[in-house]
Simulated scan of single mutants.
Amino acid sequence: MKVAFTFPGQGSQAVGMGKELADAFPEAKAVFQEVDDALDQKLSDVMWNGPEAELTLTANAQPALMAVSLAAIRVLQARGVDLAEKVSFVAGHSLGEYSALAAAGSLNIGTAARLLRIRGNAMQSAVPVGQGAMAALLGLDFETACEIDKEAAQGEVCEVANDNAPGQVVVSGHLAAIQRAVEIAKARGARRAVMLPVSAPFHCSLMAPAADAMASALSNADIKAPVVPLVANVLAQPISDPGEIRRRLVEQVTGTVRWRESVTWLAENGVDTFFEIGSGKVLTGMVKRIAKDAKGIAVNSAQDIDAVLETFGAGAVAAQ
């Protein structure tokens, strides 16, 4: 068995996430307190009690999702799961890269939370509300989506933001260009082409102001070499050098999340078990579409923790 830990991105948030872990495990509760302290905000209260609209705000959703992922990681570590021994690679979808790096010891949790708060605010403010948009093109491959982008742009920005899985590509850019892309995709035989309910056009060149903000924030951040390599979104290749990690996290703000290629690379390099650590199971579903022979397991409850321990032969340990 060769294992990768993957970490979800925005869209996987839900009111109540992480509450079961906090109630069951003191290590998890301590992580949520650590994030609250780092942000000087009772973010855990928003996570567990809502309102949903407040949790969904980009500046809240990003550190909140990281907190759930790291709560699960701390519980696993306390029960003998050493990433350096048990895990070959980490990878995260968009903001999930920060969770992956924190899990692998490259960032401490407080630093990751503060960086994600800056990132969320910067991405939200990079484009005035109503000027940008994103859309999912389902049933078309990456190459076709790129052709549609070029046709739809007409002098505006229209770019592939997420290459998530075979037949699942997300485009991002100016509102009118994305609307044109949806219509062109339908004409090109897309199974579905739908506008997404997002607050900004993430992962396209319109995010350049946010990339500048992250370059400044990351230049001052303490980043160590991770104990296992990170398969970077913008490369679909593993990296470990702190300087390169900084550069790729900046590039990631405007660049394509190459998730399909990342999972393909991991599978081709022997990974047969993907644990999705954190809220939801979006990445687990993608793994099943990308690497059909691999096993995908979502880990976000006490029962899931026991399943991981059993997989590693550590034996289930009852929650305290």
Rank of each mutant, 00 (worst) to 15 (best):
residue 101 L to P: 14
residue 32 F to R: 07
residue 101 L to N: 14
residue 205 S to C: 07
residue 122 A to I: 01
residue 253 V to A: 03
residue 132 G to A: 04
residue 318 A to R: 13
residue 239 I to M: 12
residue 286 M to W: 04
residue 149 D to A: 13
residue 306 D to G: 15
residue 296 G to Y: 02
residue 274 F to D: 05
residue 227 V to K: 08
residue 184 I to K: 03
residue 231 V to W: 00
residue 18 G to M: 06
residue 316 A to P: 08
residue 81 V to E: 03
residue 50 G to Y: 08
residue 56 T to G: 08
residue 305 I to T: 11
residue 134 M to N: 04
residue 178 I to N: 12
residue 204 C to I: 03
residue 264 T to L: 07
residue 3 V to R: 09
residue 46 V to E: 11
residue 250 V to Y: 01
residue 41 Q to Y: 10
residue 208 A to N: 05
residue 204 C to L: 12
residue 207 M to T: 00
residue 170 V to H: 09
residue 233 N to Y: 10
residue 129 V to W: 09
residue 121 N to K: 15
residue 189 G to V: 11
residue 306 D to T: 14
residue 180 R to V: 11
residue 166 P to R: 10
residue 70 L to M: 13
residue 222 D to L: 00
residue 136 A to Y: 06
residue 96 G to M: 12
residue 193 A to Y: 10
residue 107 L to K: 02
residue 127 V to P: 09
residue 305 I to N: 09
residue 216 S to L: 02
residue 303 Q to N: 12
residue 150 K to G: 04
residue 115 L to Y: 03
residue 201 P to R: 04
residue 39 L to V: 12
residue 43 L to V: 07
residue 67 A to P: 11
residue 316 A to Y: 02
residue 283 L to D: 04
residue 209 P to H: 02
residue 26 P to G: 01
residue 56 T to Y: 03
residue 56 T to S: 11
residue 290 I to L: 01
residue 198 V to I: 10
residue 118 I to M: 00
residue 320 Q to E: 14
residue 126 A to D: 02
residue 23 D to H: 07
residue 114 R to M: 11
residue 46 V to Q: 03
residue 120 G to P: 07
residue 316 A to Q: 14
residue 226 P to N: 11
residue 124 Q to L: 11
residue 110 G to I: 12
residue 86 K to Y: 08
residue 165 A to F: 04
residue 259 W to V: 01
residue 105 G to W: 06
residue 109 I to A: 00
residue 123 M to T: 01
residue 126 A to H: 06
residue 9 G to T: 01
residue 178 I to S: 11
residue 104 A to S: 09
residue 155 G to L: 13
residue 279 S to K: 00
residue 240 S to V: 04
residue 273 T to Q: 10
residue 110 G to F: 11
residue 62 Q to F: 00
residue 102 A to W: 09
residue 114 R to K: 15
residue 214 M to D: 07
residue 22 A to T: 09
residue 300 N to F: 10
residue 288 K to N: 12
residue 163 D to C: 03
residue 85 E to T: 08
residue 213 A to E: 08
residue 101 L to C: 12
residue 290 I to R: 11
residue 219 S to W: 04
residue 186 K to L: 15
residue 258 R to T: 08
residue 13 Q to M: 05
residue 148 I to N: 10
residue 272 D to P: 00
residue 105 G to K: 04
residue 310 E to S: 14
residue 212 D to E: 14
residue 128 P to Q: 05
residue 146 C to L: 13
residue 172 S to W: 01
residue 311 T to P: 01
residue 209 P to D: 09
residue 279 S to N: 02
residue 249 L to V: 04
residue 57 L to I: 04
residue 95 L to V: 15
residue 185 A to Y: 11
residue 226 P to I: 12
residue 288 K to M: 09
residue 293 D to H: 13
residue 13 Q to R: 10
residue 164 N to W: 05
residue 5 F to E: 08
residue 30 A to L: 14
